[in-house]
């Protein structure tokens, strides 16, 4: 157990006072601490947005890249150094919107990373436009007559793609979220956790509205049952069943085949390739004249 003070950084926090991002941040620190993952064993990866600033506020290795591109970056890092616990922490606009294509293909690859979506159903940093998870009809500072298209259903999509760990958390439930994050991080393979988060600045609903709808998944839910998991996921955006919706342990993890060939550990520690391998490929391209026979 590592005390959460050890994850403190000197960066100045840029979130709105009272933002539920603080709850997610604390839950993540607690989860890391209780899993005994020291800061240097963790790499936090994000895109752009208020949620994507999280890595600056938790002591760990940080890759704060481009909007929407956290997942491919995390995959690159995980392959290059599988000793790191690679965790994406970014918003719904970043992961579901700009980066939606990468998420779809991450389900197929099953990389050993965790993706935490700070799902506040709004573009907060750009000051209040609709996001992929904004409910139809909700008015925003861009969709003045209400959002005219349906919200995305990425958790159901994840389950359809047999994503190996799919959960929904609630930013206001520190203890429950900590436990969910621990399970997601410990899961071998791709884990997706969508954290419902009220936006206290631009959101259309008070915190109480979310609290009413973020109820635990019934205890008799079987997370290996794909159809029931999809049905639970599809209850959003009217209600948000909280807990593990779907879990599937045994599937090949991305990069396993490569590791069987080159061995474990960070790629930069692998021994250099034997020069004879390159020389043999060059030699194979060499063509020697045969003794000439008259035609």
């Amino acid at each position: 157990m590592i005390p959460i003070e050890q994850y403190r950084t000197t960066a100045e926090n840029q979130w709105c006072p009272g933002c539920p991002n603080f709850g997610i941040q604390t839950a993540l620190k607690r989860a890391l601490g209780s899993l005994n993952l020291a800061p240097h064993q963790v790499c936090l990866v994000s895109g752009i947005g208020q949620a994507a600033k999280t890595p600056h506020y938790i002591a760990a290795h940080v890759f704060n890249g481009l909007h929407g591109r956290a997942i491919p970056a995390a995959i690159g890092i995980q392959i290059a150094n599988p000793d790191l616990k690679t965790i994406v922490t970014s918003g719904d606009g970043c992961i579901f919107g700009e980066g939606g294509n990468h998420l779809l293909h991450a389900f197929r690859r099953n990389p050993d990373i965790t993706v935490i979506v700070h799902d506040n159903q709004i573009y907060a940093l750009t000051k209040g436009q609709g996001s992929p998870t904004t409910r139809r009809g909700e008015k925003t500072r861009m969709q003045f007559d209400g959002v005219a298209i349906d919200p995305s259903q990425m958790l159901a999509t994840a389950i359809v793609h047999d994503c190996t760990f799919v959960a929904r958390g609630y930013a206001g439930d520190l203890e429950g979220l900590t436990e969910l994050l621990k399970r997601a991080i410990e899961h071998r393979g791709f884990s997706l956790i969508d954290v419902i988060q009220p936006c206290i600045t631009w959101g259309n609903h008070p915190v109480a509205w979310y609290k009413e709808r973020a109820t635990p998944i019934p205890t008799d839910h079987d997370p290996t049952h794909r159809d029931r998991a999809i049905a639970l996921a599809l209850e959003a955006p009217d209600s948000f069943p909280i807990g593990v919706l779907y879990e599937k342990p045994a599937r090949e993890v991305f990069g396993e085949t490569y590791r069987q060939k080159v061995g474990d550990g960070p790629i930069f520690k692998l021994p250099p390739l034997a020069p004879s391998i390159i020389q043999s490929r060059l030699k194979a391209m060499q063509i020697h004249p045969a003794p000439r026979v008259g035609a």
């Binding site: 890249g65 970056a73 290059a80 150094n81 960070p266 790629i267 930069f268």
Partner: peptide
């Protein structure tokens, strides 16, 4: 790029 940042 990220693989490079992680040393590969």
């Amino acid at each position: 790029l990220a693989a490079s940042a992680a040393g590969a």
